[in-house]
Nucleic acid binder design. Structure first.
Length: 185
DNA sequence: CCACACTATTTAA
DNA sequence: TTAAATAGTGTGG
């Protein structure tokens, strides 16, 4: 199995996308610290083939849109094989939440025909390997509480706020630029 | 298998 | 604010 990592520089920090041969495997949020200093420079990986280049571009646009609070454009194929059947069912349900809207953990559970599995839904959200693009930040707790977020609640609040105020055709020009390739996961 | 101990929950007391 | 209920998953025997 060969992986490719793709780093996106944004005003919100450096995001990383990890690809398997089957598609997008994971999205990582910027490290808590502003990624200072002397981490060993990434060993450059093999030049990406056209298929990977296409995936990279799709991921870049999607991350760009997500950070702007806009609806997501076409995504690259997602490699969800690491998740259980239940997890994948939850993740698929999350992709059906429209931009700017939210659902509760319980609502997602009900959608899956398991009205009492709210807590398990939360667990599946926490296991979501592709936050931001699989919009687990749109899942909140009942009673208007925020719930949790694997990358930190500040991100969840930020994303929800941007989506909520995202003007119709509104633009929020955030640029992503390719910074580097590598071959390790 | 079985038993527990975890959860980004929810509801009732 | 606390406690109990509840489902899925990982771990240890």
């Amino acid at each position: 199995m060969t992986y490719a990592r793709f780093h996106f520089r944004t005003p919100d920090g450096v995001f990383t996308a990890v690809f398997s041969p089957d598609g997008l495997l994971a999205v990582r949020f910027p490290p808590p610290r502003p990624a200072t200093s002397k981490a060993s420079p990434e060993p450059p990986g093999p030049a990406p083939n056209p298929k990977l280049r296409g995936w990279f571009n799709l991921a870049a646009k999607a991350i760009n849109a997500a950070l702007a609070g806009r609806a997501l454009p076409k995504l690259p194929p997602l490699d969800l094989a690491q998740g259980t059947e239940f997890h994948q069912a939850v993740w698929r349900a999350l992709t059906e939440i429209p931009t700017g809207e939210t659902r509760t953990y319980k609502q997602i559970a009900a959608r899956l025909g398991r009205p009492k599995a709210a807590r398990a839904v939360g667990q599946a959200c926490g296991a979501n390997p592709i936050p931001l693009l699989i919009p687990c930040h749109r899942v909140v707790a009942a009673g208007g509480r925020l719930g949790g977020f694997s990358a930190g609640l500040a991100w969840k609040e930020l994303l929800l706020e941007r989506e909520a105020r995202s003007p119709r055709p509104g633009h929020f020009p955030i640029r992503c630029s390719r910074t580097n390739w590598s071959s390790a996961p």
